[in-house]
Design a binder for these strands. Sequence first.
DNA 1: CTACAAGCGGAGTGATCGCTCCGCTTTTCG
DNA 2: CGAAAAGCGGAGCGATCACTCCGCTTGTAG
Lengths: 212, 212
Amino acid sequence: MTQASDVVSRPRQLRRDAAENRELLLAAAAQVFAEVGLGAGVEEIARVAGVGVGTLYRRFPTKEALIAELVQDVLEKMSVLAEQAVAAPDGRGLEQFLESSSAYQAEHRGCLPKLWHTSPDNEAVVRVRRTIAALLAEAKRHGQVREDITATDLTMLMWSIRGVIETTRDVAPEAWRRHLALLVAGLRPAGTPLGHRPLTRAQVDQVLADPT
Amino acid sequence: MTQASDVVSRPRQLRRDAAENRELLLAAAAQVFAEVGLGAGVEEIARVAGVGVGTLYRRFPTKEALIAELVQDVLEKMSVLAEQAVAAPDGRGLEQFLESSSAYQAEHRGCLPKLWHTSPDNEAVVRVRRTIAALLAEAKRHGQVREDITATDLTMLMWSIRGVIETTRDVAPEAWRRHLALLVAGLRPAGTPLGHRPLTRAQVDQVLADPT
DNA sequence: CTACAAGCGGAGTGATCGCTCCGCTTTTCG
DNA sequence: CGAAAAGCGGAGCGATCACTCCGCTTGTAG
Protein backbone atom coordinates (compact mmCIF):
# COMPACT_ATOMS: atom_id res chain seq x y z
CA MET A 1 0.00 0.00 0.00
CA THR A 2 2.24 2.78 1.33
CA GLN A 3 5.13 1.32 -0.54
CA ALA A 4 6.79 4.63 -1.28
CA SER A 5 7.07 5.78 2.34
CA ASP A 6 8.31 2.41 3.51
CA VAL A 7 11.60 3.38 5.03
CA VAL A 8 10.48 6.78 6.23
CA SER A 9 7.33 5.61 7.98
CA ARG A 10 9.15 3.11 10.17
CA PRO A 11 9.93 4.54 13.63
CA ARG A 12 13.35 5.81 12.66
CA GLN A 13 15.56 2.80 11.97
CA LEU A 14 15.85 -0.89 12.70
CA ARG A 15 18.49 -1.97 15.14
CA ARG A 16 21.41 -3.74 13.47
CA ASP A 17 20.50 -7.25 14.68
CA ALA A 18 16.86 -6.65 13.79
CA ALA A 19 17.66 -5.60 10.24
CA GLU A 20 19.88 -8.65 9.85
CA ASN A 21 17.15 -10.96 11.09
CA ARG A 22 14.73 -9.38 8.66
CA GLU A 23 16.93 -10.36 5.73
CA LEU A 24 17.50 -13.82 7.18
CA LEU A 25 13.75 -14.29 7.40
CA LEU A 26 13.17 -13.21 3.80
CA ALA A 27 15.87 -15.58 2.57
CA ALA A 28 14.55 -18.43 4.71
CA ALA A 29 11.00 -17.84 3.52
CA ALA A 30 12.07 -17.87 -0.13
CA GLN A 31 13.92 -21.14 0.40
CA VAL A 32 11.22 -22.89 2.40
CA PHE A 33 8.41 -21.77 0.10
CA ALA A 34 10.41 -22.97 -2.90
CA GLU A 35 10.88 -26.36 -1.27
CA VAL A 36 7.45 -27.12 0.14
CA GLY A 37 5.14 -24.42 -1.21
CA LEU A 38 3.27 -21.55 0.37
CA GLY A 39 1.61 -23.98 2.76
CA ALA A 40 4.82 -24.10 4.78
CA GLY A 41 4.33 -23.19 8.43
CA VAL A 42 5.76 -20.01 9.92
CA GLU A 43 7.56 -22.08 12.54
CA GLU A 44 9.59 -23.79 9.83
CA ILE A 45 10.58 -20.48 8.28
CA ALA A 46 11.65 -19.08 11.64
CA ARG A 47 13.64 -22.23 12.36
CA VAL A 48 15.52 -22.02 9.06
CA ALA A 49 16.21 -18.34 9.68
CA GLY A 50 17.50 -19.24 13.15
CA VAL A 51 15.06 -17.04 15.04
CA GLY A 52 11.80 -17.47 16.95
CA VAL A 53 8.36 -16.97 15.46
CA GLY A 54 7.97 -13.91 17.66
CA THR A 55 10.76 -12.26 15.73
CA LEU A 56 9.11 -13.11 12.45
CA TYR A 57 5.91 -11.43 13.54
CA ARG A 58 7.72 -8.36 14.81
CA ARG A 59 9.17 -7.79 11.33
CA PHE A 60 6.12 -8.81 9.30
CA PRO A 61 2.57 -8.21 10.54
CA THR A 62 1.26 -11.42 8.96
CA LYS A 63 2.51 -14.36 6.95
CA GLU A 64 0.68 -12.80 4.03
CA ALA A 65 2.76 -9.64 4.33
CA LEU A 66 5.95 -11.68 4.26
CA ILE A 67 4.82 -13.35 1.05
CA ALA A 68 3.87 -9.99 -0.43
CA GLU A 69 7.39 -8.74 0.22
CA LEU A 70 8.86 -11.71 -1.65
CA VAL A 71 6.46 -11.17 -4.52
CA GLN A 72 7.48 -7.53 -4.65
CA ASP A 73 11.13 -8.54 -4.96
CA VAL A 74 10.34 -10.85 -7.85
CA LEU A 75 8.27 -8.20 -9.62
CA GLU A 76 11.04 -5.67 -9.27
CA LYS A 77 13.56 -8.12 -10.68
CA MET A 78 11.23 -8.83 -13.60
CA SER A 79 11.00 -5.14 -14.25
CA VAL A 80 14.77 -4.95 -14.43
CA LEU A 81 14.95 -7.97 -16.74
CA ALA A 82 12.41 -6.36 -19.07
CA GLU A 83 14.36 -3.14 -19.21
CA GLN A 84 17.56 -5.04 -19.91
CA ALA A 85 15.87 -6.80 -22.82
CA VAL A 86 15.08 -3.49 -24.52
CA ALA A 87 18.71 -3.28 -25.58
CA ALA A 88 18.51 -6.50 -27.62
CA PRO A 89 18.84 -6.05 -31.40
CA ASP A 90 16.43 -6.92 -34.23
CA GLY A 91 13.29 -7.03 -32.08
CA ARG A 92 14.64 -10.03 -30.19
CA GLY A 93 14.13 -8.30 -26.85
CA LEU A 94 10.71 -9.82 -26.24
CA GLU A 95 12.02 -13.32 -26.72
CA GLN A 96 14.95 -12.58 -24.44
CA PHE A 97 12.67 -11.23 -21.73
CA LEU A 98 10.36 -14.24 -21.88
CA GLU A 99 13.38 -16.46 -21.47
CA SER A 100 15.04 -14.54 -18.65
CA SER A 101 11.85 -13.88 -16.70
CA SER A 102 10.81 -17.52 -16.94
CA ALA A 103 14.22 -18.63 -15.75
CA TYR A 104 13.96 -16.24 -12.81
CA GLN A 105 10.51 -17.54 -11.95
CA ALA A 106 11.76 -21.10 -12.08
CA GLU A 107 14.38 -20.21 -9.49
CA HIS A 108 11.91 -18.40 -7.24
CA ARG A 109 8.97 -20.69 -7.59
CA GLY A 110 7.92 -20.43 -3.97
CA CYS A 111 5.69 -17.41 -4.25
CA LEU A 112 4.50 -17.92 -7.82
CA PRO A 113 0.89 -18.67 -6.92
CA LYS A 114 0.64 -15.19 -5.45
CA LEU A 115 2.75 -13.52 -8.11
CA TRP A 116 -0.22 -12.78 -10.33
CA HIS A 117 -2.44 -11.53 -7.58
CA THR A 118 -0.91 -8.18 -6.80
CA SER A 119 -2.62 -4.86 -7.10
CA PRO A 120 -2.59 -3.77 -10.76
CA ASP A 121 -1.55 -0.35 -9.46
CA ASN A 122 1.68 -1.75 -8.06
CA GLU A 123 4.48 0.39 -9.38
CA ALA A 124 6.63 -2.55 -10.48
CA VAL A 125 3.68 -4.12 -12.29
CA VAL A 126 3.02 -0.90 -14.17
CA ARG A 127 6.66 -0.65 -15.14
CA VAL A 128 6.86 -4.25 -16.37
CA ARG A 129 3.72 -3.78 -18.39
CA ARG A 130 4.92 -0.63 -20.07
CA THR A 131 8.22 -2.25 -20.98
CA ILE A 132 6.60 -5.40 -22.30
CA ALA A 133 4.35 -3.31 -24.51
CA ALA A 134 7.45 -1.62 -25.91
CA LEU A 135 9.19 -4.96 -26.44
CA LEU A 136 6.13 -6.31 -28.24
CA ALA A 137 5.91 -3.27 -30.51
CA GLU A 138 9.59 -3.57 -31.38
CA ALA A 139 9.24 -7.30 -32.08
CA LYS A 140 6.34 -6.61 -34.42
CA ARG A 141 8.26 -3.82 -36.17
CA HIS A 142 10.99 -6.32 -36.99
CA GLY A 143 8.50 -8.91 -38.15
CA GLN A 144 9.39 -11.29 -35.31
CA VAL A 145 5.84 -11.49 -34.01
CA ARG A 146 2.50 -11.64 -35.79
CA GLU A 147 0.40 -8.47 -35.75
CA ASP A 148 -2.61 -9.93 -33.96
CA ILE A 149 -0.74 -10.62 -30.72
CA THR A 150 -1.60 -8.27 -27.86
CA ALA A 151 0.12 -7.46 -24.59
CA THR A 152 -2.57 -9.41 -22.73
CA ASP A 153 -1.64 -12.45 -24.80
CA LEU A 154 1.83 -12.21 -23.35
CA THR A 155 0.45 -12.01 -19.82
CA MET A 156 -1.54 -15.14 -20.50
CA LEU A 157 1.58 -16.74 -21.95
CA MET A 158 3.40 -16.14 -18.68
CA TRP A 159 0.53 -17.65 -16.71
CA SER A 160 0.84 -20.74 -18.85
CA ILE A 161 4.59 -21.01 -18.32
CA ARG A 162 4.03 -20.76 -14.60
CA GLY A 163 1.80 -23.81 -14.84
CA VAL A 164 4.54 -25.80 -16.53
CA ILE A 165 7.20 -24.60 -14.10
CA GLU A 166 5.12 -25.59 -11.09
CA THR A 167 4.15 -28.95 -12.51
CA THR A 168 7.60 -30.03 -13.60
CA ARG A 169 9.67 -28.31 -10.92
CA ASP A 170 10.90 -31.40 -9.12
CA VAL A 171 11.28 -33.72 -12.05
CA ALA A 172 12.52 -31.56 -14.92
CA PRO A 173 13.19 -28.00 -13.77
CA GLU A 174 14.24 -26.97 -17.28
CA ALA A 175 11.21 -28.37 -19.07
CA TRP A 176 9.60 -24.95 -19.37
CA ARG A 177 12.26 -24.02 -21.95
CA ARG A 178 10.83 -26.36 -24.52
CA HIS A 179 7.33 -25.17 -23.80
CA LEU A 180 8.46 -21.58 -24.25
CA ALA A 181 10.05 -22.53 -27.58
CA LEU A 182 6.70 -23.89 -28.67
CA LEU A 183 4.97 -20.70 -27.60
CA VAL A 184 7.51 -18.53 -29.38
CA ALA A 185 6.95 -20.57 -32.53
CA GLY A 186 3.26 -19.78 -32.17
CA LEU A 187 3.98 -16.08 -31.86
CA ARG A 188 5.81 -16.01 -35.19
CA PRO A 189 4.04 -14.55 -38.24
CA ALA A 190 2.41 -16.54 -41.06
CA GLY A 191 0.22 -18.63 -38.81
CA THR A 192 -3.51 -18.85 -39.24
CA PRO A 193 -5.54 -16.25 -37.31
CA LEU A 194 -6.01 -17.13 -33.64
CA GLY A 195 -9.77 -16.82 -33.90
CA HIS A 196 -10.51 -15.80 -30.32
CA ARG A 197 -10.61 -12.37 -28.79
CA PRO A 198 -7.65 -11.50 -26.57
CA LEU A 199 -8.21 -10.65 -22.93
CA THR A 200 -9.01 -7.02 -22.25
CA ARG A 201 -6.77 -5.00 -19.99
CA ALA A 202 -9.63 -4.82 -17.48
CA GLN A 203 -9.85 -8.60 -17.34
CA VAL A 204 -6.16 -8.90 -16.61
CA ASP A 205 -6.56 -6.31 -13.87
CA GLN A 206 -9.35 -8.33 -12.36
CA VAL A 207 -7.19 -11.43 -12.21
CA LEU A 208 -4.44 -9.45 -10.54
CA ALA A 209 -6.84 -8.01 -7.99
CA ASP A 210 -8.31 -11.37 -7.01
CA PRO A 211 -6.90 -12.20 -3.58
CA THR A 212 -7.63 -15.93 -3.81
CA MET B 1 -5.42 -49.40 -6.04
CA THR B 2 -7.84 -52.34 -6.26
CA GLN B 3 -9.84 -50.49 -8.86
CA ALA B 4 -10.93 -53.58 -10.72
CA SER B 5 -12.59 -55.35 -7.81
CA ASP B 6 -14.33 -52.21 -6.61
CA VAL B 7 -17.93 -53.29 -6.93
CA VAL B 8 -17.32 -56.89 -5.99
CA SER B 9 -15.37 -56.19 -2.83
CA ARG B 10 -18.09 -54.05 -1.29
CA PRO B 11 -20.22 -56.06 1.18
CA ARG B 12 -22.85 -56.98 -1.38
CA GLN B 13 -24.78 -53.86 -2.33
CA LEU B 14 -25.53 -50.38 -1.09
CA ARG B 15 -28.99 -49.68 0.22
CA ARG B 16 -31.04 -47.52 -2.15
CA ASP B 17 -30.82 -44.33 -0.05
CA ALA B 18 -27.12 -44.89 0.54
CA ALA B 19 -26.39 -45.24 -3.18
CA GLU B 20 -28.35 -42.07 -3.85
CA ASN B 21 -26.45 -40.16 -1.21
CA ARG B 22 -23.20 -41.34 -2.71
CA GLU B 23 -24.09 -39.72 -6.02
CA LEU B 24 -25.32 -36.58 -4.29
CA LEU B 25 -21.99 -36.31 -2.49
CA LEU B 26 -19.96 -36.69 -5.67
CA ALA B 27 -22.05 -34.03 -7.42
CA ALA B 28 -21.82 -31.71 -4.41
CA ALA B 29 -18.07 -32.19 -4.16
CA ALA B 30 -17.59 -31.40 -7.85
CA GLN B 31 -19.63 -28.22 -7.47
CA VAL B 32 -18.03 -27.02 -4.24
CA PHE B 33 -14.48 -27.78 -5.39
CA ALA B 34 -15.16 -25.91 -8.63
CA GLU B 35 -16.38 -22.90 -6.69
CA VAL B 36 -13.85 -22.58 -3.90
CA GLY B 37 -11.09 -25.03 -4.73
CA LEU B 38 -9.88 -28.25 -3.14
CA GLY B 39 -9.44 -26.42 0.17
CA ALA B 40 -13.19 -26.56 0.68
CA GLY B 41 -14.19 -28.20 3.96
CA VAL B 42 -15.94 -31.53 4.09
CA GLU B 43 -18.72 -29.95 6.12
CA GLU B 44 -19.57 -27.64 3.21
CA ILE B 45 -19.69 -30.56 0.79
CA ALA B 46 -21.98 -32.54 3.08
CA ARG B 47 -24.23 -29.50 3.54
CA VAL B 48 -24.60 -28.99 -0.23
CA ALA B 49 -25.33 -32.69 -0.66
CA GLY B 50 -27.94 -32.43 2.08
CA VAL B 51 -26.37 -35.05 4.33
CA GLY B 52 -24.20 -35.11 7.45
CA VAL B 53 -20.44 -35.47 7.42
CA GLY B 54 -20.85 -38.89 8.96
CA THR B 55 -22.55 -40.04 5.80
CA LEU B 56 -19.74 -38.66 3.68
CA TYR B 57 -17.19 -40.64 5.64
CA ARG B 58 -19.24 -43.79 5.44
CA ARG B 59 -19.12 -43.62 1.63
CA PHE B 60 -15.55 -42.38 1.24
CA PRO B 61 -12.79 -43.34 3.65
CA THR B 62 -11.06 -39.95 3.37
CA LYS B 63 -11.52 -36.62 1.63
CA GLU B 64 -8.61 -37.66 -0.56
CA ALA B 65 -10.50 -40.75 -1.74
CA LEU B 66 -13.48 -38.59 -2.68
CA ILE B 67 -11.22 -36.36 -4.76
CA ALA B 68 -9.61 -39.39 -6.38
CA GLU B 69 -13.03 -40.60 -7.46
CA LEU B 70 -13.75 -37.25 -9.13
CA VAL B 71 -10.37 -37.30 -10.85
CA GLN B 72 -11.10 -40.78 -12.12
CA ASP B 73 -14.36 -39.58 -13.66
CA VAL B 74 -12.58 -36.74 -15.44
CA LEU B 75 -9.86 -39.05 -16.75
CA GLU B 76 -12.41 -41.48 -18.06
CA LYS B 77 -14.26 -38.69 -19.83
CA MET B 78 -11.01 -37.48 -21.37
CA SER B 79 -10.37 -40.97 -22.61
CA VAL B 80 -13.76 -40.93 -24.32
CA LEU B 81 -13.13 -37.50 -25.83
CA ALA B 82 -9.82 -38.71 -27.23
CA GLU B 83 -11.41 -41.75 -28.81
CA GLN B 84 -14.13 -39.61 -30.34
CA ALA B 85 -11.50 -37.36 -31.90
CA VAL B 86 -9.97 -40.26 -33.78
CA ALA B 87 -12.86 -40.08 -36.21
CA ALA B 88 -12.01 -36.53 -37.29
CA PRO B 89 -10.80 -36.18 -40.90
CA ASP B 90 -7.51 -34.85 -42.28
CA GLY B 91 -5.48 -35.31 -39.11
CA ARG B 92 -7.60 -32.71 -37.33
CA GLY B 93 -8.37 -35.10 -34.50
CA LEU B 94 -5.55 -33.90 -32.28
CA GLU B 95 -6.72 -30.33 -32.50
CA GLN B 96 -10.27 -31.41 -31.77
CA PHE B 97 -9.19 -33.39 -28.73
CA LEU B 98 -7.15 -30.52 -27.33
CA GLU B 99 -10.18 -28.29 -27.68
CA SER B 100 -12.75 -30.68 -26.22
CA SER B 101 -10.57 -31.88 -23.37
CA SER B 102 -9.67 -28.32 -22.40
CA ALA B 103 -13.32 -27.33 -22.47
CA TYR B 104 -14.14 -30.27 -20.24
CA GLN B 105 -11.38 -29.36 -17.83
CA ALA B 106 -12.63 -25.78 -17.70
CA GLU B 107 -16.02 -27.06 -16.63
CA HIS B 108 -14.60 -29.41 -14.00
CA ARG B 109 -11.85 -27.23 -12.69
CA GLY B 110 -12.36 -28.30 -9.09
CA CYS B 111 -10.04 -31.27 -9.07
CA LEU B 112 -7.55 -30.09 -11.68
CA PRO B 113 -4.64 -29.71 -9.25
CA LYS B 114 -4.85 -33.44 -8.57
CA LEU B 115 -5.65 -34.42 -12.13
CA TRP B 116 -2.00 -34.80 -13.06
CA HIS B 117 -0.98 -36.69 -9.98
CA THR B 118 -2.57 -40.04 -10.58
CA SER B 119 -0.74 -43.30 -10.86
CA PRO B 120 0.74 -43.62 -14.36
CA ASP B 121 -0.59 -47.15 -14.31
CA ASN B 122 -4.16 -45.95 -14.06
CA GLU B 123 -6.10 -47.64 -16.81
CA ALA B 124 -7.75 -44.45 -18.04
CA VAL B 125 -4.39 -42.67 -18.17
CA VAL B 126 -2.91 -45.46 -20.24
CA ARG B 127 -5.84 -45.35 -22.63
CA VAL B 128 -5.70 -41.57 -23.05
CA ARG B 129 -2.00 -41.74 -23.71
CA ARG B 130 -2.29 -44.40 -26.35
CA THR B 131 -5.04 -42.51 -28.14
CA ILE B 132 -3.15 -39.22 -28.02
CA ALA B 133 -0.13 -40.91 -29.54
CA ALA B 134 -2.34 -42.12 -32.37
CA LEU B 135 -3.87 -38.67 -32.85
CA LEU B 136 -0.43 -37.14 -32.97
CA ALA B 137 0.82 -39.63 -35.55
CA GLU B 138 -2.21 -39.00 -37.72
CA ALA B 139 -1.79 -35.23 -37.46
CA LYS B 140 1.83 -35.54 -38.52
CA ARG B 141 0.88 -37.81 -41.42
CA HIS B 142 -1.40 -35.07 -42.73
CA GLY B 143 1.22 -32.40 -42.23
CA GLN B 144 -0.82 -30.66 -39.56
CA VAL B 145 1.91 -30.89 -36.95
CA ARG B 146 5.67 -30.50 -37.19
CA GLU B 147 7.72 -33.69 -36.97
CA ASP B 148 9.71 -32.77 -33.88
CA ILE B 149 6.68 -32.68 -31.58
CA THR B 150 6.45 -35.61 -29.16
CA ALA B 151 3.62 -37.02 -27.09
CA THR B 152 5.24 -35.61 -23.96
CA ASP B 153 5.08 -32.16 -25.54
CA LEU B 154 1.33 -32.55 -25.67
CA THR B 155 1.20 -33.54 -22.02
CA MET B 156 3.15 -30.42 -21.18
CA LEU B 157 0.81 -28.44 -23.38
CA MET B 158 -2.13 -29.62 -21.29
CA TRP B 159 -0.34 -28.67 -18.08
CA SER B 160 0.08 -25.20 -19.47
CA ILE B 161 -3.58 -24.89 -20.43
CA ARG B 162 -4.54 -25.93 -16.95
CA GLY B 163 -2.55 -22.99 -15.63
CA VAL B 164 -4.45 -20.58 -17.83
CA ILE B 165 -7.81 -22.14 -16.96
CA GLU B 166 -7.13 -21.88 -13.24
CA THR B 167 -5.83 -18.34 -13.43
CA THR B 168 -8.62 -16.92 -15.55
CA ARG B 169 -11.49 -19.05 -14.33
CA ASP B 170 -13.47 -16.34 -12.56
CA VAL B 171 -12.74 -13.45 -14.88
CA ALA B 172 -12.66 -14.93 -18.36
CA PRO B 173 -13.57 -18.62 -18.34
CA GLU B 174 -13.09 -18.85 -22.11
CA ALA B 175 -9.66 -17.24 -22.21
CA TRP B 176 -7.92 -20.59 -22.57
CA ARG B 177 -9.30 -20.86 -26.11
CA ARG B 178 -7.08 -18.08 -27.36
CA HIS B 179 -4.10 -19.55 -25.58
CA LEU B 180 -4.80 -22.92 -27.17
CA ALA B 181 -4.97 -21.23 -30.57
CA LEU B 182 -1.52 -19.82 -29.93
CA LEU B 183 -0.22 -23.23 -28.95
CA VAL B 184 -1.75 -24.88 -32.00
CA ALA B 185 -0.07 -22.24 -34.18
CA GLY B 186 3.20 -23.26 -32.54
CA LEU B 187 2.57 -26.91 -33.32
CA ARG B 188 2.23 -26.19 -37.04
CA PRO B 189 5.10 -27.07 -39.38
CA ALA B 190 7.63 -24.63 -40.84
CA GLY B 191 8.66 -23.16 -37.54
CA THR B 192 12.25 -23.03 -36.42
CA PRO B 193 13.46 -26.04 -34.42
CA LEU B 194 12.40 -25.97 -30.78
CA GLY B 195 15.95 -26.35 -29.57
CA HIS B 196 15.26 -28.13 -26.29
CA ARG B 197 14.90 -31.79 -25.58
CA PRO B 198 11.35 -32.97 -24.95
CA LEU B 199 10.42 -34.60 -21.64
CA THR B 200 11.03 -38.32 -21.48
CA ARG B 201 8.21 -40.67 -20.75
CA ALA B 202 9.82 -41.49 -17.43
CA GLN B 203 9.80 -37.84 -16.41
CA VAL B 204 6.12 -37.52 -17.17
CA ASP B 205 5.50 -40.64 -15.10
CA GLN B 206 7.38 -39.11 -12.21
CA VAL B 207 5.20 -36.01 -12.30
CA LEU B 208 2.11 -38.18 -12.30
CA ALA B 209 3.35 -40.22 -9.37
CA ASP B 210 4.19 -37.19 -7.23
CA PRO B 211 1.47 -37.07 -4.52
CA THR B 212 2.05 -33.39 -3.67
C1' DC C 1 -46.04 -56.58 9.88
C1' DT C 2 -41.90 -57.14 12.19
C1' DA C 3 -37.19 -57.44 13.37
C1' DC C 4 -32.79 -56.18 12.46
C1' DA C 5 -29.10 -54.77 9.64
C1' DA C 6 -27.80 -50.78 7.48
C1' DG C 7 -27.71 -45.97 7.32
C1' DC C 8 -28.04 -41.54 9.37
C1' DG C 9 -26.82 -36.72 11.61
C1' DG C 10 -23.86 -33.93 13.92
C1' DA C 11 -21.53 -33.04 18.39
C1' DG C 12 -17.11 -34.06 19.76
C1' DT C 13 -11.81 -35.08 19.22
C1' DG C 14 -7.15 -34.32 18.30
C1' DA C 15 -3.87 -32.20 15.28
C1' DT C 16 -2.27 -28.17 13.08
C1' DC C 17 -2.13 -23.53 11.86
C1' DG C 18 -1.44 -18.42 12.25
C1' DC C 19 -0.64 -15.37 15.69
C1' DT C 20 0.09 -13.06 20.62
C1' DC C 21 2.20 -12.09 24.95
C1' DC C 22 5.68 -11.49 28.32
C1' DG C 23 9.92 -12.20 31.01
C1' DC C 24 14.57 -11.93 29.64
C1' DT C 25 18.68 -10.21 26.59
C1' DT C 26 21.13 -7.17 23.55
C1' DT C 27 22.12 -2.88 21.35
C1' DT C 28 22.62 1.91 21.43
C1' DC C 29 24.02 6.38 22.97
C1' DG C 30 25.06 10.16 26.21
C1' DC D 1 29.78 2.54 31.91
C1' DG D 2 24.95 2.46 32.66
C1' DA D 3 20.22 3.01 31.71
C1' DA D 4 16.56 2.86 28.67
C1' DA D 5 14.79 1.38 24.48
C1' DA D 6 14.47 -2.08 21.31
C1' DG D 7 14.59 -6.82 20.25
C1' DC D 8 14.25 -11.64 21.39
C1' DG D 9 12.36 -16.74 22.05
C1' DG D 10 8.89 -19.80 22.44
C1' DA D 11 4.93 -21.35 25.37
C1' DG D 12 0.29 -20.81 24.74
C1' DC D 13 -4.28 -19.30 22.55
C1' DG D 14 -8.17 -19.59 19.55
C1' DA D 15 -9.74 -21.02 15.06
C1' DT D 16 -10.10 -24.45 11.71
C1' DC D 17 -9.62 -28.76 9.67
C1' DA D 18 -10.24 -33.86 8.74
C1' DC D 19 -12.20 -37.40 10.92
C1' DT D 20 -14.85 -40.55 14.67
C1' DC D 21 -18.52 -42.23 17.55
C1' DC D 22 -23.00 -43.21 19.07
C1' DG D 23 -27.98 -42.91 19.86
C1' DC D 24 -31.68 -42.66 16.73
C1' DT D 25 -34.07 -43.66 12.02
C1' DT D 26 -35.09 -46.09 7.82
C1' DG D 27 -35.11 -49.60 4.29
C1' DT D 28 -35.75 -54.41 3.48
C1' DA D 29 -36.12 -59.55 3.79
C1' DG D 30 -38.95 -63.11 5.48
